[in-house]
């Protein structure tokens, strides 16, 4: 069953298409990722799905309810963690959760609060003011707040933005636990390729308000095709080159002096065979590297631009920044 269903969603500001005819669905229990640069339409999509923004055109259903017609029912069934860390510094961790619990009209919230605190490993610091927490702890509390009502879908907008590598990995572990142990469906947005790759069952690549590709990360990478093996040889050998080309799985061999670039499928299995051939032909291999396609390559292939190019796309960013501020402030 699809727990999120989005049909031809469009959001227009003036003449700017923040979202253009976006359709997709998210299955129960999966981690679904929206991958795209800043200003691609990720937050706009989340804002519509959590009922804080109305679409210009199209429909969206979350947990079976229409986000425009039945916003209260949608709200009761979701958790939302925004890209800014939004916990109240003046309250303790426990008080933050208590307040959150009552926003959802939960009774006997104390037991639930203990459970959640345990889940994010904050039990021992729960009675300290949040102002004393580290950024990682605040983020965990933030996610905990989003979980208080045992939501059917948890929306995470850029969950690891601005965190260091270690903290980022810990947050990833928590997110995986939510899915594996609690079976919560998670909709997350990110502009980190690695994050989408590690966490998501399926990824939609979104750019300029349109979905460019949507599939499992492995399949997306598979579309890009082949792995590349780079060899540096001591000297060039015609015989070695010919026998390389005959190896099964090798698609293309190119030589530039003593550098050899091989496009292949299944590089792990091929590397030992390449060494075997090299020893038969008495060719010395000076170095070898193999590279698998990354989501970044996928992104490039689908959008024709690198993430960084878009990030420096100042004009669009400015326009978009203005739009976004409207519902942030």
């Amino acid at each position: 069953m699809s727990i999120i269903k989005v049909e031809n969603l469009t959001k227009i500001y003036g003449d700017f298409f923040a979202l253009n005819n976006v359709s997709f669905s998210v299955e129960q229990g999966e981690i679904f990722g929206f991958l795209g640069p800043n200003g691609a339409g990720k937050t706009t999509t989340i804002m519509i799905l959590i009922t804080l923004l109305k679409p210009s055109k199209g429909r969206a259903f979350v947990a079976g309810y229409d986000v425009v017609k039945e916003p209260s029912k949608v709200r009761a069934n979701i958790g939302y963690v925004s890209q800014d860390i939004t916990v109240d510094d003046y309250l303790t961790g426990r008080e933050n959760l208590k307040f959150q619990a009552h926003l959802y009209n939960l009774n006997n919230e104390n037991k639930r609060i203990e459970e959640i605190l345990n889940l994010v490993d904050l039990s021992d610091r729960a009675d300290e003011p949040v102002a004393l927490y580290s950024a990682g702890m605040k983020r965990r509390l933030d996610i905990a707040c989003g979980l208080i009502n045992t939501p059917k879908v948890l929306f995470l907008d850029e969950p690891t933005l601005g965190l260091d590598a270690q903290t980022k990995r810990r947050i990833w572990d928590y997110i995986k636990r939510l899915k594996n142990e609690l079976g919560i469906t998670i909709f997350l947005t990110t502009h980190y390729m690695e994050e989408a790759d590690i966490l998501c069952n399926r990824v939609a690549i979104i750019d300029r308000g349109e979905i460019k590709a949507l599939d499992k990360p492995s399949i997306l990478k598979g579309h890009i095709g082949d792995e590349v093996i780079n060899l540096k040889l001591e000297y060039l050998s015609e015989a070695f080159m010919d026998s390389l080309k005959k190896l099964q799985g090798i698609k293309e061999v190119k030589f530039h002096d003593t550098l050899c670039s091989i496009k292949a499928k299944g590089a792990e299995g091929l590397i030992p065979k390449i060494f075997e051939l090299a020893s038969i032909h008495k060719v010395k291999v000076e170095s070898l590297s193999s590279k698998k396609p990354t989501l970044e390559d996928v992104f490039l292939a689908y959008t024709g631009r690198g993430l960084r190019d878009i990030l420096s796309d100042k004009e669009k960013g400015k326009i978009f920044g203005k739009r976004m501020r409207r519902f942030r402030y």
């Binding site: 959590i50 009922t51 804080l52 209260s72 709200r75 009761a76 979701i78 939302y80 925004s82 890209q83 800014d84 939004t86 109240d88 959150q100 926003l103 959802y104 009209n105 707040c145 009502n149 519902f327 942030r328 402030y329």
Partner: peptide, 15 residues
């Protein structure tokens, strides 16, 4: 609350 995004957290709840 609005500046820091906290208001959105409240608004995303059924209150």
């Amino acid at each position: 609350d609005r500046r820091l995004g906290y208001m959105n957290r409240i608004l995303a709840s059924p209150i």
